[in-house]
Computed example of a mutant assay.
Amino acid sequence: MLPKLQFTLCFLTRGDDVLMLHRNRPPNAGLWNGIGGHWEEDESALQGVLREIEEETGYHLEKAFFCGILTWEGFEIPAGGLVLFTAQAPEGEPQGCSEGKLAWKPKEWLFHSPEVVSNIHVFAPYILNGSNPLHFHFIYEAGKILAYKISPVPAELRL
């Protein structure tokens, strides 16, 4: 049984760079992450992520590509999940946002930097290098990844 999927996360790309958000509040305060947040009950995951992208960057996008789901247990917030997306960023620089500082970072930096949310090291190489959608499940203890599992997206998943 999957935990409730209630968040979205998108990695906006431009060439070999990815737009990242340096979060100024929990969860993951002080770390770099993709763009996203909650999606509303009357929205699909795609509608939610497109709204979040516009709110946090000023970019109005028509589409984003489904890359999988990420679930967790034992993290600083209750067990849950999010839907992962990637999207091509339009021309121009993003606007500022209240969630934190936005900056373009090299894709390879995401895969190894201690400044990013730690699970990005596991899933970003898959989603940013064109893998089929996958389910990434993380188990945390004391703020650290204790274990993770990568598996196919469940057939019963309905977004």
Rank of each mutant, 00 (worst) to 15 (best):
Q6T: 14
F7P: 00
T8M: 05
L9K: 06
L9F: 03
C10E: 13
F11G: 01
L12Y: 09
T13W: 05
T13G: 05
R14C: 07
G15Y: 02
G15W: 07
V18F: 14
V18P: 12
M20Y: 01
M20P: 00
L21T: 10
H22D: 04
N24R: 13
N24M: 09
N24A: 01
N24G: 10
R25D: 11
P26H: 12
P26T: 15
P27A: 09
N28Q: 13
A29E: 10
A29H: 04
A29K: 15
G37E: 09
H38Y: 07
H38K: 14
H38P: 15
H38A: 08
H38L: 15
W39Y: 13
W39N: 02
E43V: 04
S44T: 10
A45F: 03
A45M: 04
A45G: 13
Q47I: 01
L50C: 03
L50F: 07
R51L: 00
R51P: 02
R51M: 00
E52I: 02
I53Y: 08
E54G: 01
E55P: 00
E55M: 08
E55G: 01
E56V: 03
E56W: 05
T57L: 11
Y59K: 11
H60I: 14
E62P: 00
E62L: 06
K63H: 12
F65C: 12
F66Y: 15
C67F: 05
C67G: 01
G68N: 09
G68Y: 07
I69A: 05
I69L: 15
L70D: 01
L70Q: 12
L70H: 13
W72S: 15
W72K: 07
E73T: 12
E73F: 00
E73K: 14
G74R: 05
F75M: 05
E76W: 00
I77S: 08
A79I: 02
